[in-house]
């Protein structure tokens, strides 16, 4: 009896400290964390997401380029807003998803969390890159410059890109996937502080970049005929992001579950 008790004490001590402190998770969470369930769900969702996203982005681009009126001050250069704002928004959302998923993977040792984080990182980096480039292109005819060092909004957006790239570089430094997961998760979670800083940078510091247009709820800053295409584009970009994440996530699940029986079955059924 004594010996068994001692063994139990040892095994409970070697359990990860954090997950011991955290509350246990409800059952649905574990089902959601089950790779075969998520893989099959992704198979069902992917075509819907892809086609709706393509329709919304095509329609939103047409509305933004043709139907929306030119701005009273900026003329037609204002139409860049329809690609710039969705890219910037998705870059930040991708980081929040990456950090949250990495935290879930780190704390509860759910591998799927790390798989989601790895899937979101390159997509988030590309959207952040897009936000920086389209912002520069928009800045030239309006502000008079492509880039302005010292503008808080621009600097923190650049740091967001570096965080994505740093996360990917850090992972590449490990041969052991478990270690890569755990170490890179720390960087992802620490870096999430940058997201609210980006959002509030235009209010906390005096910047060349203007304040928020659509996220403030008081007096409207944009007329409805200009806002509608923007909202369509934001939804379209979000669905496109979801489609991209699901593709990469399925790839990650296949890599990580290569020895699992369900996957072997699935793969042999496919190739047969």
């Amino acid at each position: 009896m004594n010996r068994v008790g001692a063994r139990q004490a040892v095994s409970s001590r070697t359990r990860p400290v954090l997950s011991g402190l955290m509350p246990s998770l409800p059952v649905w969470f574990h089902r959601w964390g089950s790779p075969p369930h998520v893989y099959r769900l992704a198979d069902r969702l992917r075509p819907w997401l892809g086609w709706i996203a393509a329709l919304l982005i095509a329609g939103g681009a047409f509305a933004g380029l043709v139907l929306a009126p030119p701005d009273y001050l900026q003329g037609d250069s204002f139409r860049i807003i329809y690609v710039h704002v969705p890219s910037a928004y998705l870059g930040m959302m991708a980081y929040v998803l990456m950090a949250a998923a990495a935290a879930v993977g780190f704390v509860w040792r759910i591998k799927l969390g790390h798989a989601v984080a790895v899937s979101a990182a390159p997509i988030g980096a590309s959207f952040t890159f897009l936000a920086l480039v389209t912002g520069g292109i928009w800045g030239k005819p309006t502000w008079g410059t492509y880039w302005e060092w010292g503008d808080a909004r621009l600097m923190f957006e650049l740091i967001l890109l570096f965080l994505f790239l740093g996360y990917l570089a850090l992972r590449a430094a490990f041969d052991d996937q478990d270690k890569a997961d755990r170490v890179s998760a720390i960087l992802a979670v620490v870096g999430v502080i940058n997201v609210p800083i980006i959002h509030y940078s235009v209010e906390w510091w005096s910047t060349l970049h203007q304040g928020p247009t659509i996220s403030k709820l008081d007096s409207p800053s944009i007329t409805m005929d200009m806002l509608a295409p923007l909202l369509v584009m934001i939804v379209g970009f979000t669905l496109c992001f979801a489609w991209l994440v699901l593709n990469r996530l399925q790839g990650q699940i296949v890599e990580r579950e290569r020895d699992a029986r369900w996957l072997r079955q699935l793969v042999t059924e496919r190739t047969r």
């Binding site: 037609d76 250069s77 860049i80 890219s87 590309s126 389209t134 005819p141």
Partner: peptide
């Protein structure tokens, strides 16, 4: 594009490529 063609089309073009 009201004289802004290089800016508007390059922004949309890069977005499409990415």
């Amino acid at each position: 594009m009201g004289g802004y063609a290089p800016y508007v089309w390059s922004a949309y073009g890069i977005t499409l490529v990415v």
